[in-house]
């Protein structure tokens, strides 16, 4: 009988794409999301959507088995941030003193979304890294 062992795939093993060399540890995306805006503000509101987009791209290239969940998390987080930005706009006109508080809430939602997506993707990345180092 032919040995086709390479056909058997364990369900939690990531299925890296051809661009897997671009995959990074998702924790680096988290650090970048927090540190980069301290020195440079990405244009077009990039500090809100760039980390989420990068996480989704990272999940795709490393073949994350939880990619659909990461999409849901980033999608829900993105919608929540958009809603809060609308609130910010409304509040800025009526209650200037409340603006910093709304901004803190927006940051909290952004960080929660990024944390949750990063920790979800991290298990796929660790396995990807483990298998890559073992030469599989």
């Amino acid at each position: 009988m032919a040995n086709n062992h390479s056909d058997y795939v364990i369900i939690d093993e990531p299925k890296p794409s051809a661009l897997s060399h671009l995959a990074v540890n998702p924790l680096y995306i988290l650090f970048a999301a927090i540190l980069v805006p301290l020195f440079w503000m990405p244009p077009m509101g990039g500090r809100f959507w760039l980390p989420l987009a990068w996480l989704l791209f990272n999940g795709y290239v490393l073949g994350s088995t939880t990619w659909k969940k990461e999409w849901l998390i980033c999608g829900a987080g993105g919608i929540a941030i958009l809603l809060l930005l609308f609130v910010l706009g409304a509040v800025a006109n009526a209650f200037m003193q409340a603006v910093p508080y709304v901004f803190i809430m927006i940051n909290a939602v952004l960080f929660l979304t990024i944390y949750y997506a990063v920790f979800t993707q991290n298990s796929s990345y660790e396995l990807f890294d483990y298998l890559r180092e073992s030469g599989e």
Binding site: Q97, I104, A108, F111, Y116
Partner: peptide, 24 residues
Amino acid sequence: NLQLGLVLIVGYLTFNLLSQVLED
């Protein structure tokens, strides 16, 4: 994962809201 994120966010909100309130 979600519980850990919530713990960290509670920490973030506590410090930052407190800082803002003190400034106000």
